[in-house]
């Protein structure tokens, strides 16, 4: 089992993902430089959080043109597992590996806080270790995490069981009060059609040690490691 963590200029959660895999799980993990044009062999590729290329245009919009993304897209098309966290989710959407858009939070502010998540899909390779009734406490930290998609896409996501996580309250109720950014259907994470690509705004790598307040992100990595 080998993980690759892509490093774009401006990535800043690359080390956090690397650290969890290396120090908490002790699995093989390597960085992938954004200028690389030929991928080594990986089982899972992580697009980490951060501000790739400064995100001065639109979050993730420039990153999709970086040399490595051609390879990542091919890797995903071949069925490889791709996990995009925060900025990584934004990049996956920009790169059309996932549908919809991540627009500015409805309150127009950057927001960092613990949120509660309901695991909607417990069948995918990313979420199979979770149970349907699980309520996860995981932090968010973003300015543009407001998931938007047209009605027919939302319906498709629901019908095909592609909504991985939804923002909820501590009791697991998916409600407006628990929505930290205005996302449609309280969406916090979605899967592609083939369910080998997951994009999510919350940071599971920040919820992987008891000392830091939550271990609820652990099972996501465990699901992948098997």
């Amino acid at each position: 089992m080998k993980f690759g963590v892509v490093v774009f200029p401006g990535s800043n959660c690359d080390y956090d993902a690397y650290y969890v895999l290396k120090k908490v799980f002790n699995v093989q993990v390597e960085y992938i430089w954004h200028k690389e044009t030929k991928l080594r062999r990986f089982d899972v590729i992580i697009l980490p959080g951060g501000f790739s290329y400064g995100d001065y245009l639109r979050a993730g919009a420039v990153a999709k043109f970086s040399p490595v993304m051609k390879e990542v897209i091919q890797f995903a098309k071949n069925g490889g597992s791709v996990l995009g966290i925060c900025n990584g989710f934004q990049i996956l959407v920009e790169a059309d590996l996932l549908p919809g858009a991540l627009i500015t939070n409805n309150h127009l502010q950057f927001r960092c806080q613990d949120v509660f998540l309901k695991v909607k899909n417990t069948e995918s390779r990313f979420t199979k270790n979770y149970n349907k009734e699980d309520v996860l406490k995981i932090p968010i930290a973003h300015h543009s995490g407001n998931y938007f998609a047209e009605e027919h896409i939302l319906k498709e996501l629901e019908d095909e069981d592609r909504i991985a996580f939804q923002y909820c309250n501590s009791k697991g109720e998916v409600c407006d009060e628990a929505n930290p950014n205005g996302s449609k259907l309280n969406i916090a994470g979605i899967l592609n059609k083939e369910k080998n690509v997951l994009g999510m705004m919350p940071h599971p790598e920040r919820a992987a040690e008891e000392l830091l307040g939550s271990e609820h992100g652990l099972e996501l990595f465990k699901s992948l490691i098997g």
Partner: peptide, 23 residues
Amino acid sequence: QQYDQSVRTNTVIGPGASSAVIR
């Protein structure tokens, strides 16, 4: 809450407490 308080995964106690604690 407008500041990223937990990036680098070291923040044991963040803002709003007596003091911050970083492992």
